[in-house]
Computed example of a mutant assay.
Amino acid sequence: MGRRFTASAADARAGRAVPAGPVTQDIHWTGELRSATGVALLLGTALFTMDAGFGKLDVARGALWTGLAALLLAILLPPRVSVRPGLLSARGLLVGHSVRTDSLVSVRWFDGVSQRLVLRDTEGNRVEIDPTVLVRNPGMWRRLDTDIRTSVQRGTLLCGASAFRQLAERVDRETAHTVFRVSGLR
């Protein structure tokens, strides 16, 4: 969490200078990874056990059940989100996306069953994350909040001031609820 990084290879190839700084990562990601792995293993084990109990387990069906469990893991695997000064990255199973948070053009918050926060920077990069990640990780939120304010000061943030305020209010509300819950006042 406190390690310093230089610009990534992709940033160096593109000629972008990303300031080095402490990296803050989602502290709940390993738990979500464990849960996704557990669900996939549970499904695979149940399918293998059921087939073996009926006497129908063979190599083809075993490969099918293994593939189905691996597909479920790929679907449930959460992206690994990290923030450092000037950069937010979301790394999925196969690909990762980064956005310059100190030169954002838009911040959009899509509310609904699956809430999404979509960030776009001046270079055309786009990252989509679950806003709950920021609510659960105050260090990530503080870093992103600072960088979004930098974008506002620079005049690059053209769209998203209301989404930013809504997210800030939600983070403040959740933080207050957590403080009350921990202190026994709620």
Rank of each mutant, 00 (worst) to 15 (best):
N137C: 06
N137H: 04
N137R: 05
P138F: 01
P138H: 02
P138D: 01
G139W: 06
G139S: 15
M140C: 13
M140Q: 15
M140A: 11
W141T: 07
W141M: 05
W141K: 08
W141A: 09
R142G: 03
R142L: 12
R142V: 12
R143G: 12
R143V: 12
R143S: 15
R143L: 14
L144I: 15
L144F: 13
L144A: 12
L144E: 10
L144D: 13
L144H: 13
L144W: 10
D145N: 14
D145I: 01
D145R: 14
D145G: 04
T146S: 14
T146E: 14
T146H: 14
T146D: 14
T146K: 13
D147C: 08
D147E: 12
D147Q: 12
D147V: 01
D147F: 01
I148A: 05
I148F: 07
I148K: 07
R149F: 01
T150L: 10
T150Y: 06
T150V: 12
S151H: 05
S151L: 03
S151I: 00
V152D: 04
V152H: 04
V152Q: 13
V152G: 02
Q153W: 05
Q153M: 07
Q153P: 00
G155M: 11
G155K: 11
T156Q: 09
T156W: 04
T156M: 10
T156G: 07
L157M: 07
L157G: 04
L157F: 06
L158C: 03
L158Y: 03
L158D: 05
L158R: 09
L158W: 01
L158E: 08
L158P: 00
G160F: 03
G160Y: 02
G160H: 01
G160R: 00
G160L: 00
G160Q: 02
A161I: 00
A161K: 02
A161T: 02
S162E: 10
S162L: 04
S162F: 04
S162K: 09
S162D: 13
S162H: 08
S162W: 03
S162Y: 03
A163E: 09
A163F: 03
F164L: 06
R165N: 08
R165V: 05
R165K: 12
R165W: 02
Q166E: 12
Q166W: 09
Q166K: 13
Q166M: 08
Q166P: 03
L167D: 02
L167K: 01
L167Q: 01
A168L: 02
A168R: 08
A168V: 00
A168E: 10
A168C: 03
E169M: 02
E169F: 05
R170F: 06
V171R: 01
V171T: 02
V171M: 06
